[in-house]
Design a protein around this nucleic acid. Structure first.
Lengths: 199, 199
DNA sequence: CGAGCGATTGAACCAGGTCAAACGGGGTGG
DNA sequence: CCACCCCGTTTGACCTGGTTCAATCGCTCG
């Protein structure tokens, strides 16, 4: 009612997270969320105290944290891979049944997506990930890349390999430097899609 | 009514598929299914005519082919990785809402599972896959492995590497030979779990 | 300015890929 | 019944893409 004029439906209590920010932690309580934009990354917290394992990605439209609706607690840690916006789910006006089925359909694609990000040579994996990070569709687009160690974790490569691969892409003018080196605030180079189609 | 005496609830029209058998094809019409036992493998049929790409696995309890409920057609090809049993979904007595939420929760784990199968060294991947193929829980268990090329595809290795790795495991008595070499009917070696815990 | 952290770059190494050959069992046809 | 073929598996030799280890750079923040 109050401020929902130009927002997507039922986004009144949307929450925004900046790249790298924690969304929820494994074992914590909270609602399920619908991703309205951006990319969310999941971690499986290993019981044996070792560091969290990459466990998946969710993109716009998908639901995260459903298990909390059934069991009361999240199973995974979720962090924002890119800046993103989430709203509590289910929410608003959609028919619940269709909403659920749609969510389930999207969830089926999640596995295929991460598989693709770990298939083929380093350069193919990274191109696919960059594509995923770009705002959909548009033939030429820009996006800010996450820290190399995150890219490495998702693609099952090392940060060094990612760096070398990105350098190659930069040399071929597939992506633009724009911030070649980084300091504390993790921001990496921007990307131009152009040639990326040939993945 | 004829043969449903000792079957699980709502499994009247369960269908059994033998390892390697096609369950449904991308673009075909049909119901969604619930996997009651066994492991189902998905393929994404590449539009450009190349061979199908591995796109995920579903295990007991999960729902496959939901997209057909919304769009009328399957998005993936599904084949039986192990002998398995499916029944049309939704079916029977469960509260539909809970059933959907549960399905959605399981779907969230699918991505984590395939990621794990493509993480770490060859031997770890294969151990994880074997674990997945074994009937749950039981400390010592047996299962028949799929053809090496299937294992290779799932773990993002080559059939040669899989063969060498399995030979190693056989040498270490982690798995048992039982059918070391194979002919036309693809049946591979059987497995004993015992040492598999140390994955 | 100095510390800290991520990115970059180089050099050596190795796990796994690639190519090729041989094997073995089941199925098929004679 | 036997010979042959097909196909998945096994094994070897070699090669390479990516990892590992380590040094350096650059930016940001204190």
């Amino acid at each position: 009612m109050i401020d929902s004029a130009d927002m997507p439906i039922s986004a009144q209590d949307a929450r925004r997270f900046k790249s790298g920010q924690r969304i929820h932690d494994a074992g914590a309580e909270g609602p399920a969320w619908r991703v309205s934009s951006g990319v969310v990354r999941f971690h499986l917290i290993d019981e044996s105290g070792s560091e969290p394992l990459f466990a998946g990605l969710a993109v716009g439209g998908e639901i995260v944290g459903v298990e909390a609706l059934l069991f009361g607690r999240y199973s995974y840690r979720a962090t924002a891979l890119t800046d993103c916006e989430l709203s509590p789910w289910p929410g608003g006006a959609t028919t619940e049944r269709d909403s659920l089925l749609h969510a389930l359909t999207l969830a089926e694609h999640r596995a295929a997506r991460v598989v693709a990000l770990r298939s083929g040579q380093a350069i193919e994996r990274i191109r696919r990930l960059i594509r995923l990070l770009l705002p959909q569709a548009s033939a030429v687009a820009r996006a800010e890349l996450p820290p190399l160690r995150d890219i490495a974790e998702i693609t099952a490569l090392t940060a060094e390999t990612v760096s070398r691969t990105l350098s190659g892409l930069r040399r071929q003018k597939v992506i633009e430097p724009e911030q070649p080196r980084c300091g504390r605030g993790h921001k990496s180079c921007l990307v131009a899609l152009d040639l990326l189609a040939a993945a």
